[in-house]
Design a protein around this nucleic acid. Structure first.
Lengths: 218, 218, 218, 218
DNA sequence: TATGAATGAGACTTCATTCAT
DNA sequence: TATGAATGAAGTCTCATTCAT
């Protein structure tokens, strides 16, 4: 999958070439990813050229290829990065408990996500870039699965304990994708977040879940 | 001879260079757009190269540039094409009347759209490509506005007669984007449409509107 | 050299495909040449594209190729046109006689040429274009020879009756080229002719011939 | 890393993208310019294609664009190169002094220039190319100004101390252009220099200046 | 390991020329 | 004969990737 084979670059795959171990390297990788995100957010997918990334990161193009076998691996790493941030957020906030209603949890979570989106324009850019690239098809599946599996499915199950797995999954995907998209929508036009869209998102997800709960009374 | 100039050097822009008038030309343009859509759907954004389009369309590269000043103009034309189809659908089906409840209208419309998505894989590909391309920012705005303005806003207003314009617009955008996205989602993985996602979409939009209606009783 | 051979376009040569006989055709050819000259003068050699010529001339590109086998033939025709005008001028004005000193003849001629240059920016453009194009090497030789042979050589011989042919030729070429160039120079920068350059040209040619006459007394 | 950016997309212009600093690069640039000159001299303006230059120079096309943002920048660099050589020559040889009459200086200078022309066929080709290219209009002005300003104007002023600046400039331009052109003329037809033309050039410039001196006695 | 100059396949686009109508 | 849409070879230039230093 990797290494000294220089004849089939396409086969190299999308995984990072090596995990940076030293602090210096880790920092370098971060700079590269930051640069990529900036370019993506500022000028769109077509503007993310490897040389531009290196320049923006203040790193040589050679260094970029030290860590990533090709440009798609950079997108993939970005995806992973954002995926993790979101997963963490969901795991922390999308939880129901004795002192925490599902409505609270949902509202909190969306607020947190909205804040992430507002403070980092790139969330959506990354999502789009990954959607669009044939080479990242696999990465896309993960994006969905990782988020869906744990925090989201558990949350929905708490509300609809009798629902079959397939239904839980469908609801989860609907919620996930809608949120993603509407969070993005809230950021378009101008640089300030459109809080009305956030409100509608909350309202919609709330009505949606509420209706499901109502439809399947225990 | 005047007005039919086909040779003026590309005035950077995204508008078609020349509207095909003869049946032969119109057909040619259709072939070009079809080819672009196929490539987009099959291999993603990066695969849409002008030469590939020409080859796939069975048309010379020169012909492509006779009608489109650059590759972005092709994306733009695609957008327009799909935009029109959708607008037409909404105008026809998303209407309330004495013999037609809003629930019926909504369900019908989503069925129709789902059918469009199912029969033409490219709906979403086009949508994605448009999102991704800095050069098509303007085209994107239109996409939204055209659909929002007429059929959608009128529909929502019928349900929420007292709502201020801004709220109508926000609800419309939320519905529009969600539908787009979930219709796309319904098509991912495999080639058959996932009807469960469609059902969830209906359910979600229904609950969403219902809740709005309930929240603002006259 | 011509005709129905469609397989070796490069071999077609540089001669017009057919002489226009009808008034309508002749006029059409004139329009084509005028258009070519305008483009040449306005935007330089690289701007003279066959389609642009046709457009400017208000003629179809097909018509252009009716008369000229390729773009070089157009340049060649232009050369011929200007060559003839100049030759005519020289024949008329560069003549010595009982009532006309060589000084008068020289001054008159330059005035006439200057007027041609001033009223038609393109004289030099054409000259330059021809210089630069490998395909027009032959045309260039003619340009020189035609002018040199008759009016100019006769004029110089009248002043230097004993000079050998080779010297006459050399002097003629020097005069011809200098005049061309300085007439052009007089037109650069802005659109008004720089009369000082014209004066210097007269002065230079006058001193030059005078010195030759003085150096070879009969 | 900063300041050595080689990848910024071409900022339309005619200046070199990057000055070669290492010996290796400088040599590479020389090879590129040499190749361009050869093509220009051998096959004319139209033959100077970027790929042809790269091939002839034994360099990759990418390298060409590393140093020059577009083909016009190459012409510009050529112009600069020859301009400098000529300026240097004039500065050295076109000087009057107690032991050096203006006649000597003039004759020497022309001999030197003639030698440059003879040893490097391309002098004129470059000059012509520059004339022909709309994009190089600015470069042309410089060509003239640089040479005119210093060595030439000083020389003429030494001969005509009372002449107004405008006249000095006019005389300078006439001399400069005539020399350029006739040196070129001396090289046409065959490969040997036509010394008769050189002689006539000397003779003409000599008579011209002599007459000016005679016309404006102190 | 880091650098960045060098590479070259291949993208986009133009434009001279043809040929069906 | 006139037209101008169509063709496609070929030009300009980019950018992912390599590799000598």
């Amino acid at each position: 999958m990797e290494g000294t084979d220089t004849t089939r670059p396409a086969e190299r795959g999308i995984q990072p070439r090596r995990q940076p171990v030293q602090a210096r390297s880790r920092e370098r990788v971060e700079k590269i990813l930051d640069a990529a995100v900036q370019l993506l957010a500022e000028d769109g997918y077509d503007a993310v050229k490897t040389n531009a990334i290196a320049r923006r990161a203040g790193v040589s193009i050679g260094s970029v290829y030290q860590f990533f076998p090709n440009r798609f691996a950079i997108f993939n790493a970005l995806a992973q990065r954002y995926r993790e941030k979101i997963a963490e957020s969901l795991a922390t906030h999308l939880t129901v408990g004795p002192n925490r209603s599902w409505e609270e949890a949902l509202e909190d979570t969306i607020d947190i996500l909205a804040e992430m989106w507002r403070s980092d324009w790139a969330f959506h850019s990354v999502w789009l870039a990954i959607q669009n690239t044939a080479e990242l098809r696999d990465s896309r599946e993960q994006y969905r699965d990782v988020l869906l599996r744990e925090p989201l499915a558990r949350f929905i199950r708490a509300l609809l304990p009798r629902a079959p797995d397939a239904e839980i999954a469908a609801i989860g995907r609907v919620m996930l994708e809608s949120s993603n998209l509407l969070l993005d929508l809230s950021m378009r036009r101008g640089h300030a977040q459109d809080s009305r869209v956030i409100d509608e998102l909350k309202f919609m997800l709330h009505s949606y879940l509420q209706a499901h709960i109502a439809a399947k009374p225990e």
